[in-house]
Nucleic acid binder design. Structure first.
Lengths: 115, 115
DNA sequence: CTATTTAGTTACTAATTTGTAACTACCAAT
DNA sequence: ATTGGTAGTTACAAATTAGTAACTAAATAG
């Protein structure tokens, strides 16, 4: 959860945006929607412009918010898989609404994500 | 439109969030959904914690993005009314989706906005 | 013994967003 | 002449978010 919108006005819409509004969070969530589970390193391939630090941070916030599950295998070298939680899956219709609205504006490459 | 998410990854969800993700934008949009038109000064009453500078800024971005219409009456003292544009009205289902999702988390005061 | 692999962490910096306080313009009323 | 009302603007500062580069750990491969 971000703190930007530490909004004295208690608004559900703002609250929802605080969950998904991180710069890379929608892309992370969509990746997990499409792939069931994704390893840390895989994210850095799927999202080339994200740094490991920011990726860690966004994943941790999503995990703290209960939207994703982090599963660590006690192996060396390490293996960590991320997946959507049941709660996270309830976001899918919301993401689709945002996607459809945002997509109408100008159709572009990865708009086919949902199709 | 904010620039925070100047995202090289062209994602419709991110794009949508860039339109509505300003700290006060959802509240402004919901106010306009409920009231048809709102004057500048009225916003400062409806949203007591917003400063005139930030209000101006958020309204201008919403106007530049085509979501709201600014109507200025040539009077003294000035009168300026804001309303949702037709394009802005297409956001309503999206805002509802966000509201419903955000509302399920913990029900609070102004959650009745949509009911 | 050194390099490789994976999933990070740390210290520091840069960019973006939000906020404060004081100021402007114009007309009407006191 | 001063005050009041509306809708701002300006210069500046603070808070938040994102990014860089270098570093860590532990086992395995060569």
């Amino acid at each position: 959860m971000r703190k930007l919108q530490s909004n004295p006005f208690n608004c559900s819409v703002v609250k929802a945006i605080n969950y998904i509004g991180g710069k890379w969070k929608p892309i992370i969530l969509i990746s997990l929607y499409r792939r069931e589970n994704v390893r840390f390193g895989r994210f850095t391939v799927l999202i080339p412009d994200i740094s490991r630090k920011i990726l860690t941070q966004q994943l941790k916030e999503l995990e703290d918010d209960g939207l994703i599950i982090r599963q660590e295998y006690k192996e060396k070298p390490p293996r960590v898989e991320y997946r959507l939680s049941d709660f996270g899956k309830t976001l899918i219709p919301v993401l689709k609404a945002l996607h459809d609205w945002g997509g109408q504006i100008e159709n572009s490459e990865i708009n086919k994500t949902w199709n």
